[in-house]
Design a protein around this nucleic acid. Sequence first.
DNA 1: ATGTAC
Length: 470
Amino acid sequence: MELVAQGPYRFGIERHGPMRVPGVVFASRELLRDARQSLEQVANVATLPGIVGASYAMPDIHWGYGFPIGGVAATDVAAGGVVSPGGVGFDISCGVRLLAADCDAQQLAAALPDVMDDLDRVIPRGAGPGGVWHPRGEGELERILEGGARYAVERGYGEERDLTRCEDGGAVADADVSQVSARARERGLGQVGSLGSANHFLEVQQVAQVRDAAAAEAFGIREGQVCVMIHCGSRGLGHQICTDHVRAMDQAMARYGITVPDRQLACTPVDSPEGRAYLGAMAAAANYGRANRQLLAHAARQVFRRAAGARLTLVYDVSHNLAKIETHQVDGDRRRLCVHRKGATRAFPPGHPELPPDLREFGQPVLIPGTMGTASYVLVGVAGGDAFFSTCHGAGRVMSRHRAARAVTGAELRDRLERAGTAVRPLSLRGLAEEAPEAYKDVDAVVAASEGAGLCRGVARLVPLGVVKG
DNA sequence: ATGTAC
């Protein structure tokens, strides 16, 4: 794949073959080496009907289902632009929630082992069923799919202020539960309030460094402070919705005269029965994901209150796997676009009307989960960035699970982390080994490249004190 | 990511 350097952190893929727009990869030269194999997917996405601007890739790009993870693509709704479930991914609404405690790491030190033991007991995780809340039948599940974190708060699992610090106020209005299959509902019913497995985690962290004092203060974080970061998604429900709608679109595509270079890019126009059906089901999964993180946050709050007498306040909750209908400036006019962000985080700039009033002058908080034993970040959206106000989402995998598990044993990794001062509460040692930090890119380099590319600005760097893993 | 395949 031919790449043209367009800046220190920006590389272009010129249009070739059926590409409708160019590709743009934001990365340092070093990160680009890990991205090579995924560039074909960036070019494939550029062939989608209605795509505008470019097919973008973030510095943490890696191989995904159809679209690369770390990909951003926007299509023009009025011009026959498509929506593709592969552009969101199987874990619809996977995202990150950060809570800040009213204590510093030093103050928590004595209680930390108790906090970790309690979290170990109360946080459901791993594959399969289990959750902190069991909805009373499908009726209540539907309330979650329509109301998201808002419904969880209504039922007493949180406080009203949580919703102002949650993307979309805790719920999107366009969920269509009739497009959520019986099988998806069945899988979702038993997993409300659960982490899942793989790279999902709940971490107790410490703010190691503040890089933007004014933004940090507005977000409610300060150096030395204890935080809780929750990274999880919509579990089997989102997975099943993706499966169902990929199949439906794969079968319907030909009727719209759409051909794609990879069947995993199955798509139909946003403005089609199949497109609307997917977006309605996706919105339901998005709400499920927010409710999931709301319930886990509630469980963590109870643990912190009981074991440490500490209170947790929500900093922000944002997804990095969603498609959204947004209005953007394209070639001088305002256009309604379907913005796919898959392993990419929305990063609204200062002044954006969708931001809560107390954050508006600073920009949208962006939460970047690192890997065990490495840092996580709080960033903020900036004006003038490319890629429809999007930035990176995490470290990005470079080693397969299998290779990671061969490179290190779970017991070795656990001992290494504990020696480095990070308490570890894994569900399985095999799962722990698969998530070894060396299986990922350097999150510090990913964040530096994202900042260098003008996509965001650093606010704070957090380091782990304890990690709860599936 | 995922009752790690229909």
